[in-house]
């Protein structure tokens, strides 16, 4: 059964989003060591919405996180009612650049791609939906 929660997209609310994920993870009895990738990916997507999703003058948009377990796979959807934007159109950063020229911009979305097995974007009913999933490996 899936679980959803909503958080206002502001930097101050990031811990609340993380707490929502942790609470579900624990109640679902999932292994601790697999949680990190989802915590990281949720922060990166959430902060992307905080930085770019809300119109400069308007109120902050709202993020809705939906978590689900399907067999050995965890699925997480992050939906927001902010500015329409597909983060998967961003180019990967060059991770071989020397230190003087290295940029951190774009690294967040790169993490989303690299840490998850699947990543999909769609825009529907006025909301961005980024859906990710990752296998937890064979369960014992």
């Amino acid at each position: 059964m899936s679980h959803s929660f909503r958080v206002e997209a502001t930097a101050e609310r990031l811990p609340e989003a993380n707490t929502g994920l942790d609470a579900w993870w624990t109640s679902a009895g999932l292994p601790d060591e697999a949680r990190f990738a989802f915590e990281l990916v949720l922060e990166e997507i959430f902060m992307n919405v905080v930085m770019h999703g809300s119109p400069p003058e308007g109120p902050a948009c709202t993020v809705e996180v939906t978590l689900d377990r399907r067999g050995d796979e965890v699925c997480m959807e992050v939906a927001d009612d902010g500015v329409r934007f597909d983060p998967l159109t961003l180019e990967d950063p060059d991770t071989s650049t020397p230190i003087e020229d290295r940029r951190v911009g774009g690294l967040g979305v790169y993490f989303v791609r690299e840490m998850m097995d699947t990543v999909h974007y769609r825009y529907s009913e006025g909301r961005n939906h980024l859906t990710v999933s990752k296998s937890l490996g064979p369960t014992t």
Partner: peptide, 19 residues
């Protein structure tokens, strides 16, 4: 226990200043 891209930025800025 945890670092995100925002945390890495701090490492990068400090490493650059050190260099």
């Amino acid at each position: 226990e945890y670092v995100s891209s925002a945390g890495l930025r701090a490492f990068l800025v400090a490493a650059r200043a050190a260099k």
